[in-house]
Nucleic acid binder design. Structure first.
Lengths: 204, 204
DNA sequence: CTCCTTCTGCAGCGATCGCTGCAGAAGTGC
DNA sequence: GCACTTCTGCAGCGATCGCTGCAGAAGGAG
């Protein structure tokens, strides 16, 4: 602490690459190949840096993936937080599903969801990353459930509604969309299906 | 061809293990770890045989996986064919979803669906297996769509029903259940959710 | 018994895995 | 200029990957 201006840059040799840009490239590789399917050689090649630079900047492969997952959550998957702010539960559900459909079928990005296909199954050495994504998906479910609970409390949803069941239904459908997108199913078909699914809300 | 009785056993040294039992063990390993997450060492260890015996009996890792997928289709995933024989479309949908729930949450088996988590993402060298599972999932969808088309033709479903949309909805939901099961969500909760989803049929 | 075929155990192939030691390059502070 | 810190390129670490050559074992055919 102090009044020192400290306008000088960081000490030492400056980085020869844009860490943010490198992280973006790494995200695309993990997104497409999954955690264990993306080798360090494949990653660093896409990032345009050497393995040494990658390890100096991000620690190791697992830490790089955690950074990537944060970026994914705040970037491609940010539709989730925005959807929570919709005034009605139906609005939330609609925004989530259309957000999933758009994010998992964007032409410029790998198809599917990083949080689903990043590490659905792993070898023995990848358990921690698998658990990380399990927690990531469960966290999404919890947020939706709490939002629907609030909707029940506010009278937006019928009082006998089970928010957990509704949240499980919605996230299950979202994960299913991610699998379909990863299989190459087109955006329009998925959106049409999501629309049809929400024509019955909230589940009779 | 001829009238030779040929009652003698096969020529050469007989196999020292039960190929069917070995295939079952391999299925469980692929189911849990996925195609690329299951190393040959892990597989052969579980199968109780040497790598040489595995290669002699099944060709290579990819051919072993194809054999395993066949076994999975006719075993744990056989509920699909049985469901098709239900008299009504609603019966088909109900049977499929409850079949998915039971198969993906069986305590004695890995959680989730081999056809989904077997190779949702792969490295460059695993593309063919990924494509194999994409085709496997698409085949499931096609069978359901054709069954629902028949239901429309028979008057079981309203004439304005889109069988493709309905089949896409059902398979999406099924794949989502597989992801949830792989994440540790319990059987009862998933079944309750499936029941609620089918309370609205056929999608308004 | 000898031939023939097939299967098994051992040992190890080249390639790739994630990761690191080291020396030099490229900056700042003095 | 020199000291100090950080980053980079090269080269290579031990481990594991999928897979195979080879010699011997274990059966049937004659």
């Amino acid at each position: 602490m102090g009044v020192e201006t400290n306008q000088s840059g960081p000490i030492g040799r400056p980085r020869g690459f844009d860490a943010d840009e490198a992280l973006e490239r790494a995200m695309l590789v993990f997104w497409k190949h999954g955690y264990e399917g993306a080798s360090t050689a494949c990653l660093t090649n896409a990032m345009g840096i050497s393995t040494t630079s990658m390890y100096a900047a991000f620690g190791n492969k697992e830490k790089l993936f955690r950074k990537v997952l944060e970026r994914y959550t705040e970037g491609p998957s940010a539709y989730l937080v925005r959807a929570m702010e919709e005034p009605t539960a139906l609005g939330v559900a609609t925004a989530i599903l259309s957000g999933v459909v758009r994010t998992t079928t964007r032409p410029a990005h790998p198809h599917g969801c990083l949080g689903v296909q990043g590490a659905l199954t792993v070898s023995d050495s990848g358990q921690e990353v698998r658990d990380l994504l399990v927690a990531w998906r469960n966290d999404g479910y919890s947020r939706v459930r709490e939002r629907f609970q609030r909707a029940v409390d506010d009278g937006d949803l019928p009082p006998q509604t089970d928010p957990g069941l509704l949240a499980r239904y919605l996230t299950t459908f979202a994960f299913g969309i991610a699998v379909q997108a990863a299989s190459g199913v087109g955006r329009d078909e998925l959106q049409e299906m999501a629309d049809a699914a929400l024509r019955n809300w909230p589940l009779s």
